[in-house]
Design a protein around this nucleic acid. Structure first.
Lengths: 219, 219
DNA sequence: GCAAAAGTGTTGCCATTACACCCATGA
DNA sequence: TCATGGGTGTAATGGCAACACTTTTGC
C-alpha cells in the first residue's frame, strides 16, 4: 500500500548563510565566488544542500563550520525563500540563516581555499539569485535581535573596549550613537565588567577592556 | 552531463497555517482532525504539500483558500521546521505561516467539510508533531507584528468599535490594557475614523463604530 | 432606578535625548 | 605641545502608566 505521502513532489532544500564579522568599524559579510554553474564566478552566499538525515539547523551548522572552521557559532534562522524560479539552475527552496563570528577567530587561509571574500555590508555588490534579499533580511533580523538581547558579544573578542562596542552597534544599527548615553545604558545592564587592563591599540591614552560579567548570585 | 544539483537529496515540503480568528473576546485558531495516518484523528494545523510549480507563498495562499474559502488574507511566514523526525510519517520540512481572518467571513459549513474546529488560543490542546510549537511561534510573531503595524484590522469586520478593538489587542498581547490610554494611542495614530453609527449589540448605550480612514492627501 | 458598558483628562514618573569639556598619552 | 581618542554629568523632553467618575439606555 502506498502511503499518503508517496504521490507528492520532492524538492531540493538548501541553507544559505549570512556570516557577519566585525572589522575596522564595519559589519562584513563572507561571500563566495560561485564555483559551479549556473552563475559560476558570480558572488553568492555560502550555502549547501540539506542532507537526508540532517536537520535544517544541523545543515546550517555544517555549512558554517565548513566555511569558518568554527563551532558553536551564534546563529538564527531568518526566512525561507521559495519562489519557483529563484534559482536559475533548478527548483531549490532555501532557508537563510545568519551567524555572528569573531572575525579574529577566522582563519584567513580559508579565503583562498573557498575563493571567499569579506565584504563590507555597507558596500554589498550584487549577489546571485535572491541572495541580496537574504542579506537584507538577515541585517533586519540582526537589528531586531540586537535591540532585544546583547548578541553583539559574538562579533567581538572575549575582551573588548567600550568604544569598540559602540562602533559595533553603530554598524549594526547603521547610525551614530551618543557616547555618553551609550555607555550609560550598556553599563546599567550590569552584564559588562570593567577589567584592569587597557587596550592601547587604537589610542595613545588607551581604553579599558571590558568583558562579560561572571554571573552574580541571584539575590 | 549531470548537473551539479542532480546527486542531492530531495525532500517533501509542506506549509502549515496558523489561522487566527477573533471571537467573543478571544483569539481562536482553526484546527483539523487529521484525516490520514500517521496520527489520524488527532488535532493538527491545516497544511498542505508544496507543488512542483508553486512558490511557498502561493502554497500558503492555496491552503488558506481551501480551508476558509477566502482570498487576499493577511499572512506572514513565521519559521521553518526541519527536524529529521518532526513528522512521524516521513521526512517532511514544513514552513509555518500565520493568517488573520475576520471570523464573520468564515463559512461555518466548512467546519463539517474539513472536520475542523475553532479553538481558543488560551486553551490549546496538544497538536500532532511540532504543531504546538508552530502555534507558539505564530503567536509570538503576531505579537511582534501587531506592536509595529496595526494588523489587527484584518481580524475584525470593516466597521468595529473601540471596545472591540481593545479586546482584540488584549487577546493578542494576553494582557489587559487601560481603556483611556488605549483610546488615546489608537486615535492619535490617525488611521481610524469615527463613524456616525452605533453598534448596540454589546451594550445598551451603544458604542460608536469606527473604520479605517480614507487616506488623507499628503501635505 | 439600576445594572452594564461607553466615554472622557490630568498627573507623575521614567526613560531617552541632547549637549561640551577635561584627561591621558605618544609622537 | 599638540593631536588623538577616552572618559564623564546634567538638564529638558516626551512618552507611558496610573488613576475615577459621568453618561446613556434597556430592562
Amino acid at each position: 500500500m502506498t502511503s499518503f505521502y508517496s504521490e507528492k513532489h520532492k524538492f531540493l532544500l538548501a541553507v544559505d548563510c549570512i556570516i557577519f564579522g566585525f572589522h575596522e568599524g564595519e559589519l562584513n559579510v563572507l561571500l563566495l565566488h560561485r564555483s559551479f554553474e549556473p552563475e559560476k564566478g558570480k558572488l553568492s552566499l555560502p550555502g549547501g544542500f540539506l542532507k537526508e538525515n540532517e536537520s535544517l539547523n544541523d545543515a546550517a551548522i555544517r555549512v558554517l563550520n565548513e566555511l569558518t572552521g568554527l563551532e558553536n557559532l551564534y546563529m538564527e534562522q531568518v526566512h525561507t525563500f521559495g519562489d519557483v524560479h529563484r534559482d536559475s539552475g533548478e527548483r531549490v527552496v532555501s532557508v537563510a540563516y545568519y551567524a555572528l563570528i569573531n572575525i579574529n577567530d577566522y582563519d584567513t587561509s580559508l579565503l583562498g581555499k573557498y575563493n571567499a571574500i569579506w565584504v563590507k555590508s555597507t558596500d554589498m555588490p550584487n549577489l546571485v539569485f535572491d541572495h541580496s534579499e537574504m542579506v537584507q533580511s538577515a541585517r533586519h533580523a540582526l537589528c531586531q535581535r540586537a535591540a532585544i538581547e546583547p548578541v553583539g558579544f559574538n562579533l567581538l573578542p572575549e575582551k573588548f573596549t567600550l568604544p569598540q562596542f559602540q562602533t559595533l552597534y553603530e554598524a549594526i544599527y547603521g547610525e551614530v550613537l551618543d557616547k555618553r548615553n551609550f555607555r550609560k545604558k550598556v553599563l546599567s545592564m550590569n552584564v559588562l565588567e570593567k577589567l584592569n587592563e587597557k587596550d592601547k591599540l587604537s589610542s595613545k591614552r588607551g581604553a579599558f577592556l571590558i568583558g562579560l560579567m561572571k554571573k552574580s548570585i541571584k539575590s
